[in-house]
Amino acid sequence: MSELVVKVHNLSRSFGKTKALDCIDFQASRGKVYGLVGANGAGKTTLIKHLLGLLRAKSGSVRIFGEDPVKQPERVLKHIGYLSEDRDIPDWMSINELMRYTSAYHGGWDPSYADELLDTFSLDPTKKIKALSRGMRAQVALICAVAHRPDLLILDEPSSGLDTVVRNDILNAVVRTISEDGRTVIFSSHLLEEVERLSDHVTMIHQGRVTLDSSLEMINKNHHYSSIRFSERQHALPKLEDAVSISGEGRFWSVIHQGSVDSFGSTLQNIGGVIVESRHATLEEVFVYKIGREDLRDHTQITEGSE
């Protein structure tokens, strides 16, 4: 198998007049964790459906383990563990039946690992799926997704609608999967803290386009949040080349900027400002800047352009 587990090239998809994906390029290498972030309707789930072969690539191409998931569903899907947002599993089966059924498809099914997770989650294997709570269903679906130790684990909003305890259970199981060498994880989430905690690489999607595709390390390294102070009141700030988002008033302003803090500090000094405090920008701050609401963006642009 190739080291490149997922390769999406120039993928576009429209539903009626709505462009869900617009010339997307995305790659995932073996042994890394990829976080897909974006607002509702950004195109994350559409991309995941293409990875699973649930949607045919109308334009562009999708390759998983070097294969087309539409043409080779059997070969591709048996190496994938998938947890859908709505935990779609057969309601009428008992947990035990679902485990047996799922194990038949995956040669690598590890019964002791499945039992261990059942114990951890305190699930009764004789219970019917339809009798389970939302959180328990998520736990059962997760066991089915990870107990065969898949080469690629795809999680679509794994924490959506779950309480803190179940969310932690799920994240711990994902962490355990990651800790095993060579496993690749792609997961979409609204919870940016989660993405920050787990991901090596972050892909931000907005209105079907990739707006940021970088390792978390690079994002952290390149984006800073600085509190700045001027000696005199400012109605608007002059243009700061590295700044991507500015807010504040009077003498005190907050800026998210790219590049090094030193370089930004020198630029600031030239216009009479100093950095009071600086830290790496959180993913949430970068997210708001990159794919935040249009009105926020407009505000930033006005501020930036009002020198």
Partner: peptide
């Protein structure tokens, strides 16, 4: 159409 059915690792 159940996602579970559609992602069953078996040929169509």
């Amino acid at each position: 159409v159940s996602l579970h059915d559609r992602t069953t690792p078996l040929s169509t």
